[in-house]
């Protein structure tokens, strides 16, 4: 009974203190400052573009901010979180933490929860900082799109935090974690993921481009977090899809349906966390 009560209590304790660690280490201040500035500058720029006949087509606040935030959220998630656990191992903090009654999966899940809260707060700060500028400069603010963007960006942040936590538990050094995180950003955000199957087919076909497109290549391409994010947006707020960095499928197959795309994002979170907890359990500290 004590075990059942103790585990969730300790998970929340770990997550709370891990999030507070980000504040103690001034990560929160840096993130909020950066994203707040992005929100202010981009919205102000958008307001200048819509005024005095410079641009005929007005751009809303959310639309102008969304693409930069979709680029920045994975970057800060991977950059700030990928070294979290590996650095604790290097410094000996993990030895102290695991001398207390925390299960290793609590360390993984607690880091995911705590750091997701921190990273997900950053785009919300950008939107909040942009709001008064938009209202003062007559930039359009659609409350529905604003809420949809906040929810979608929070899910995107959690997905990349989960990937970063997995990197942090698997890497044996801070340097390796940093390099892997950079590689993950390039592969996922700059569409390297969907190019990978095409490269494999190119090699299999004797270094010649195949004449047909295989279904499995499309399925693999749809499992990229950024592609799945774009496909999911089509179901939440289709207008946001146009503002994102990846475009949604016009005639979606089953694996490109918004619901399936949402499940793929959740799958990334679950799979990354599961692999991290499994590998971390078997790791010598």
């Amino acid at each position: 009974m004590n075990r059942l009560v103790g585990t969730p209590r300790r998970l929340l304790l770990y997550a709370r203190e891990d999030a507070l660690d980000a504040r103690r280490e001034h990560q929160v201040h840096t993130l909020w400052g950066l994203f707040g500035l992005v929100g202010l500058v981009i919205t102000y720029t958008a307001s200048q573009g819509t005024g005095a006949g410079v641009r005929s087509e007005p751009v809303g606040m959310v639309a102008s901010l969304f693409a930069p935030l979709v680029l920045l959220v994975p970057l800060v998630a991977l950059g700030f979180v990928a070294t979290t656990i590996v650095e604790k191992r290097r410094s000996g903090a993990l030895t102290v933490l695991l001398g207390l009654p925390f299960a290793r999966r609590t360390v993984v899940l607690g880091t995911l929860l705590g750091r997701s809260a921190v990273i997900a707060s950053a785009p919300l700060i950008a939107l909040l900082a942009a709001l008064p500028v938009a209202l003062a400069t007559d930039v359009a603010v659609d409350p529905g799109r604003l809420i949809a963007a906040a929810v979608a960006l929070s899910l995107l942040a959690t997905t990349f935090v989960a990937i970063a936590v997995a990197i942090s538990t698997l890497a044996r050094s801070t340097m390796l974690a940093t390099v892997t995180a950079f590689g993950a950003y390039v592969v996922f955000v700059f569409d390297g993921w969907s190019q990978l199957p095409a490269v494999i087919r190119y090699v299999i076909h004797g270094f010649e481009r195949p004449e047909t497109t295989a279904t499995w290549v499309e399925v693999v391409a749809a499992t990229s977090p950024i592609t799945a994010f774009a496909n999911m947006l089509a179901g939440i707020s289709p207008s946001l899809t146009d503002a994102s960095i990846a475009s949604a499928a016009e005639n979606p197959e089953l694996w490109e349906e918004p619901a399936v795309a949402g499940a793929i994002l959740v799958g990334w979170i679950v799979a990354s966390t599961g692999i991290a907890a499994w590998r971390f359990r078997a790791t010598d500290i």
């Binding site: 604790k88 933490l97 001398g99």
Partner: peptide, 11 residues
């Protein structure tokens, strides 16, 4: 009281 320990962050 483990060997090879370190502080937890900036706590």
């Amino acid at each position: 009281l483990p060997d090879g320990h370190g502080p937890i962050g900036e706590r």
